[in-house]
Computed example of a mutant assay.
Amino acid sequence: MAELRTDRLTLRRWLASDLEPWAAMNADPEVREHLGDLLTRDQSAASMTRFQAEFEQRGYGWWAVEVQATGQFIGFAGLDRVEDGMPFTGVEIGWRLARQAWGRGYATEAALSVLSYGFDTLDLHEVLAVTTATNLRSQAVMRRIGMTRDPADDFDDPQVPEGPLRPNVLYRISAERH
């Protein structure tokens, strides 16, 4: 599993010590505002195990993100295959940070590193990003990393019940534009 480094961050494999801060993030209503239900500690642990296995299986996935200066775990960033049943296919970039890490440029910094890995190492031709129509913070990160949105691509997530989390937007970036 490749480790990525930026000026301030390390994107690395998941450690047992990440479980408590990861579970706390997934139990934070503000962090989960655009993601759906809060997760239990057991659900968070299961996701860590799944992230590590998927990464080892295909060579990419969700890295744990830590601040280099302190070694503090602050969330995740990475790439994943678009889930079956969506109205498009491809590889999706994503990130999730603890609330105390918001507003410091960490999501943008991590995402740029992940994009470089996707295009330079995995030889991807395009990377997608999806979020709820109301998640303006993530959409701002998508624009900062060079992604663009065509409103014709917007969709209702078929895996989400009717409500504010169902309308989604789709952003794209090609290798040529990176």
Rank of each mutant, 00 (worst) to 15 (best):
T131P: 04
D123V: 07
R99Q: 08
S113M: 06
F76P: 01
E66Y: 06
N135S: 03
R144S: 05
A129N: 08
V127P: 03
N135W: 08
I145V: 10
A107Q: 09
A69S: 08
Y106Q: 10
Q72S: 15
Q68T: 13
S138N: 12
E126N: 05
Q72F: 00
N135K: 15
L112W: 11
F55S: 01
T134P: 01
L124P: 03
Q72V: 13
T131D: 11
M86A: 02
E83T: 06
R137G: 05
R143N: 13
I74T: 09
Y60S: 00
G85T: 02
Q100H: 15
S116C: 08
A140H: 15
W63C: 00
G85P: 06
L112R: 13
L115Q: 14
I145M: 10
H125P: 13
D84Q: 11
Y117A: 04
L112P: 00
T134H: 13
D120L: 04
V91Q: 04
R144M: 15
Y60M: 03
G71Y: 03
W102P: 00
V82N: 02
I145F: 11
T132N: 03
A140G: 07
F88D: 05
G78C: 07
M86T: 05
V82D: 03
T131F: 05
R81D: 11
A98G: 15
E109K: 09
R99G: 08
L112A: 07
R104E: 14
H125E: 14
H125I: 11
L136I: 14
Q139T: 10
A133G: 06
E66N: 02
G75K: 01
A129H: 10
T108V: 07
G59Y: 02
R58M: 08
T121E: 11
P87Q: 15
R137K: 11
H125R: 10
G146Y: 09
G75D: 04
Q57R: 07
G146M: 09
R58H: 00
R144I: 06
M147L: 06
L136A: 13
I74D: 07
D80F: 10
T132F: 12
Q139H: 14
T89D: 10
F73C: 09
D84L: 13
H125C: 10
I93F: 15
Q57N: 00
S138R: 13
I93T: 13
D80W: 12
E126P: 01
N135G: 04
I74S: 15
I93V: 08
A129T: 06
E109G: 04
